[in-house]
């Protein structure tokens, strides 16, 4: 009789201790950023480290939202990230399906070629890319960033999705074909649902990359028409004045849409989906 609660406690311990430790490491710096963001300026630099402000203030958040174009930066980041997701996901899914399911000559070379485009540091590609964007007439508009980000997101997500598609047994495709499904139907009803977690992961990847990308965003944008969050935040680091209040408040807020986005995506696509699908 006494063993059950002990075992239950033990099971809980096995869950919550590692979870707590892992989350502490993952969240502590962010928490520190939050604490910093609610410190009044005169409590920022103190010889004895202050773990909680004596007079917490949300002034930094108010100033950020009222006196800076932070929300415009955020809107621009949203436009760019969502569009990049849409473009890159469609393009990469098609390519990944092709790599995973259709035999053709030169596949290995082409897959490798996709990766080779990613081996150069982007800072050295900026100048010629700038010329391309200019001749397309899209400098200082979201499409410039969508295009630039897609060149990065497509090869990476193609590789990821190819991997996820490959993990799905080919027998399922064959079974579907025998049942009379066309290629497109097989893709729709077999491959896509089964690789939903992979699609969600790739989507998350593209979104975050695009949301936080800095060097293209800096170079291809000029003002509020297209400037995104990372560049906007950087302007709070002046030559002799560093606006810690705005920077940290901005950092805290910037992460939130992604957290929200992922909660949404993981609920839509991951939770409890696969077990049933495989059986069905």
């Amino acid at each position: 009789m006494t063993r059950r609660p002990v075992r239950r406690a033990w099971a809980a311990l096995k869950l919550w201790v590692p979870l707590g430790a892992w989350l502490t490491f993952v969240l502590a710096p962010y928490a520190w950023m939050f604490i910093t963001s609610i410190k009044p300026p005169n409590e920022l630099y103190t010889k004895a480290v202050r773990y909680w402000p004596g007079q917490p203030t949300f002034e930094g958040y108010r100033l950020l939202l009222e006196t800076t174009p932070f929300l415009t930066y955020m809107r621009n980041s949203g436009i760019v990230a969502v569009s990049t997701c849409a473009v890159a996901l469609v393009v990469a899914t098609a390519a990944a399906y092709c790599f995973s399911r259709i035999p053709f000559r030169g596949k290995g070379v082409m897959l490798f070629g996709f990766l080779v485009t990613q081996l150069f540091p982007s800072v050295l590609l900026v100048l010629p890319l700038f010329l391309i964007m200019r001749s397309l007439g899209i400098l200082n508009t979201p499409p410039a960033l969508i295009l630039a980000h897609s060149t990065f997101a497509v090869p990476f997500s193609t590789w990821m999705l190819t991997g996820f598609f490959n993990a799905i047994p080919r027998e399922l495709d064959e079974a579907a074909t025998i049942d009379g499904c066309t290629r497109l139907q097989t893709f729709r009803y077999v491959l896509l649902p089964l690789s939903a977690p992979g699609v969600a992961a790739a989507l998350t990847y593209i979104f975050i990359y695009s949301w936080n990308e800095f060097i293209y965003a800096l170079t291809f944008t000029a003002d509020l028409r297209a400037r995104t969050l990372p560049v906007g935040l950087q302007t709070f680091m002046g030559e002799f004045i560093i606006r810690w209040d705005l920077l940290t408040a901005g950092g805290v807020i910037t992460a939130l849409p992604i957290v929200f986005f992922f909660m949404l995506v993981q609920r839509q696509l991951i939770a409890g989906l696969t077990a049933g699908a495989v059986k069905g």
């Binding site: 969502v82 469609v90 896509l192 939903a196 995506v265 839509q268 696509l269 989906l273 699908a277």
Partner: peptide, 13 residues
């Protein structure tokens, strides 16, 4: 399953 993904994609677009 497909509808969910399709819907999400359409929404994004």
């Amino acid at each position: 399953r497909f509808c969910r993904i399709g819907r999400l994609g359409a929404c994004l677009g």
